[in-house]
Simulated scan of single mutants.
Amino acid sequence: MTYTTVIFDMDGTLLNTLDDLKDSLNYALNQMGFPTRTLDEVRQFVGNGARRLIERAVPAGTAKETLDTCLEIYAKHYAANNQNKTKPYDGIIDLLKELKDKEYKLAIVSNKFDSSVKALCKEHYDEYIKVAIGESQHVARKPAPDSVFTAMKELGSKVEETIYIGDSDVDVHTAHNAGLKCVGVTWGFRDREILQNAGADYIIDKPMELLKILADT
């Protein structure tokens, strides 16, 4: 069956969010009196949601109550500062224009807070993407397939006509857990070797290369 639906990860795939994530994380760490983290450390920490980001960033052995406070500070700061430096990767807008012109159904699924996912989607991609699903009490975070299934339900799409695009091993596992093929992208937060080892079905280096995959399947 020909693909009709493309589901994207957000951070590291559609948007370069790393600087804003680092700034909010380091603000929270500073407030708690903890050492701050480098951009490369933050790059390795992200991908499994905000709580896991904080767990990885705070000193080993940090009490749960302290971690919860740090997460609360981070979440409040990021909600107010998540568009300071964040921007689409080169070529993404051109890709989305092509996909819209070809009448593909598009969605975003992310391990970011649902409110942040929806706000960032509206700010950067409102013309192209109407369905954006983030982490919430109602949807288990990736690599559980729940967010993917929720997006497909909202789009009215079937598994066999949907393909998933992401930049990390978490995304590959998410796609496969949902029964989808995964296109790994190398411009994000993880390198080609991680995507290969995770079992990505395809790997691309530039956004427009996705069109050839869609055309050939």
Rank of each mutant, 00 (worst) to 15 (best):
Y27Q: 01
R141T: 06
A60Q: 14
L195T: 04
C70Q: 06
G184S: 12
I7K: 01
L195Q: 04
T150P: 03
H173D: 10
I194W: 08
F113E: 10
M32W: 03
E98C: 07
V159G: 08
T162W: 02
L39N: 07
H77N: 15
L99A: 11
C70Y: 12
K22V: 12
S116E: 12
K87L: 13
P35Q: 15
M10R: 01
L211S: 04
E41L: 15
Y128R: 07
F149A: 01
P207G: 10
H176V: 04
V117N: 05
L106N: 03
P207F: 04
V58T: 08
N177E: 10
T186G: 07
Y27F: 11
D201M: 04
E123I: 11
G199A: 15
Q196M: 15
R141G: 05
L14E: 02
E154R: 00
D90G: 13
Y27R: 01
V148T: 06
D101R: 12
K100C: 04
F189G: 00
F149K: 08
I133A: 01
K112C: 04
Y202N: 05
L99V: 02
R141N: 05
N16E: 06
E193T: 13
P88T: 00
R192C: 08
H173N: 14
A132P: 00
L18R: 05
D19W: 14
R52P: 02
R51S: 05
K142H: 15
Y202I: 10
D9E: 00
E127I: 10
N177L: 07
K105S: 01
S24M: 08
I204R: 06
D9P: 00
K206L: 11
L95C: 00
D167Y: 04
Q196S: 11
K122C: 03
E161S: 13
T17E: 01
T162K: 02
V148P: 00
L180Q: 00
L95H: 07
I73K: 07
R192N: 11
K118S: 00
D167L: 13
T4E: 00
G166V: 02
F8L: 00
D23P: 07
S136L: 03
K142L: 14
R43D: 05
L53C: 13
A200H: 04
W187G: 12
T217I: 10
M152V: 03
R190Y: 14
